[in-house]
Computed example of a mutant assay.
Amino acid sequence: MRTGEPSVPRWAWVPAAAGGLLVLLPLVALLAKVPWSDFGGLVTSESARVALWLSLRTAAASTLLCLLLGTPMALVLARSSFRGLGLLRAGVLVPLVLPPVVGGIALLATFGRRGLMGHALEVAGVQVAFSTIAVVLAQTFVALPFLVTSLEGALRTAGRRYESVAASLGARPTRVLFRVTLPLVLPGLVSGAVLAFARALGEFGATITFAGSLQGVTRTLPLEIYLQREVDPDAAVALSVLLMAVAVVIIVVARRDRSAW
């Protein structure tokens, strides 16, 4: 270590190692329990393939929805000042600390057949609860705060200097947003989108409460793992490793792309 460089206190290595073991040991134990001789057959069964494909499709749809809704939300939170802003920010963050099953009940109260909006939708011939749409809504509900918080932080870090220059040159707010603001915070936007996708991919509680578990319709991979745990523990372990591998690939690709920026 060169003189003048900041150093890590020696005592910090002990809790850091303990935290690392707390995270990594269960993953190692999971890998140790995988029946590798049957792994291929377990993760390529009909039900597993259908559940994985449904998970990927709904997670992608919910991530797109998070981008469409979360980007303007983060912009309002980072660039606006009005009474009640703190309350709005707290409301956006509630799904982060809310048990997912409670989120599912809240979604049922809103979009269920007798819900706040569900009854009107039912009259119009649109059934949301216990459908693939319900899966996307449940995943969006729990994943949206991840994108909003990540992008809001990036917006605050970037500041307003370049936006002010563009505005002073006559650029309209929408042009400033797409030509200046978003390119500046693109790494934060991508990071938030990856976090949202990963959270949506692993969503369980709100999904099973609001969407149920219908094969090919609402039974995502986490739900399939939960069901297999009772009837075929080996399949549950193998599918858990598959889901973990998909999540690792997403994180590695996202970090590599972000480092390129």
Rank of each mutant, 00 (worst) to 15 (best):
G103P: 11
E5A: 09
A211V: 05
P187I: 03
L108M: 15
L186Q: 10
G159W: 10
R219C: 01
S62H: 13
E230L: 04
L93S: 02
E5T: 06
E152K: 11
G115W: 12
L88H: 01
L42G: 01
I251E: 11
R114D: 15
T58L: 11
V180K: 06
P95K: 02
S191D: 07
S259K: 02
T174P: 03
V94C: 02
A206T: 03
L221T: 04
W36P: 05
A211Q: 03
A90V: 02
T174M: 15
L221C: 10
L144H: 02
M1W: 03
L25H: 00
V237Q: 02
V97C: 00
Y226A: 04
L21H: 00
W261M: 01
I225S: 01
V128G: 11
S213L: 06
V126D: 06
L98S: 00
L30S: 10
L30C: 11
W13R: 12
L67K: 04
R258C: 03
W53R: 08
T174W: 15
L242Y: 03
G216F: 09
E163L: 08
S37R: 13
A138S: 14
S168E: 08
V135G: 12
R175I: 06
Q215Y: 02
L77Y: 04
L22C: 05
Y226C: 00
V23N: 00
T110R: 11
L107R: 14
A109T: 13
T71V: 15
P35L: 04
A245V: 11
G112E: 13
V128A: 08
V92M: 04
V190M: 09
G40R: 01
L147A: 09
L243T: 04
L64I: 15
L201I: 14
T157W: 00
V248S: 10
T140G: 13
F141E: 07
L69I: 12
V101E: 09
A247K: 09
T58N: 09
A245D: 03
A167W: 06
E122M: 09
L67V: 12
R49M: 07
G202Q: 14
G212Q: 01
A18Y: 02
L155Q: 07
F178L: 14
G112M: 13
A238V: 07
A211T: 01
V97D: 00
R160P: 01
L64K: 12
E230C: 01
G188T: 01
T207F: 12
T174I: 14
W13G: 10
T209Q: 14
H119L: 13
P187C: 05
W261E: 00
S45W: 04
F178T: 12
V248M: 14
T110S: 15
A247P: 08
H119K: 13
G86I: 09
G86Q: 08
W13I: 02
A166I: 09
R219M: 08
P222N: 08
W11P: 04
A200D: 14
L27M: 10
E46W: 03
